[in-house]
Amino acid sequence: MKLRIPIVAGVLLASAFGIGPATAEMAPGAVLANTCYSCHGTEGKSLGAMPTIHGKPAEYLSTTLKAFRDGQRPSTVMQRITKGFNDAEIDALAAYLGQKSK
């Protein structure tokens, strides 16, 4: 019974913040984002040379990630990383990371 509460919370959060629901085949933005923190720092807050990605709006993140992937923005490593994510995954990532800046 207790599990009902998180379902409601999840739906509210999903609709309030435009975080796309996870599907069976795709990891949700929250899980995908964890792979970014090893370079960009926990929650995207970097202490060293890596750029901080915390606090950037979803639109910026989505456009930037796709530009890396398609080679429109030069990079040392981000093209090699973003080529592993499809549009839906990039949008989920951007939406999840983007809502942290609000």
Binding site: P6, P21, A22, T23, P28, A30
Partner: peptide, 22 residues
């Protein structure tokens, strides 16, 4: 409403999810 798969979702919103819920 469309059925939402809960896989890997509700529990994993992390710190901000919990804060929002509060």
């Amino acid at each position: 409403m469309k059925k939402i798969s809960r896989r890997g979702f509700n529990r994993l919103l992390g710190a901000s999810g919990a804060a929002v819920a509060t």
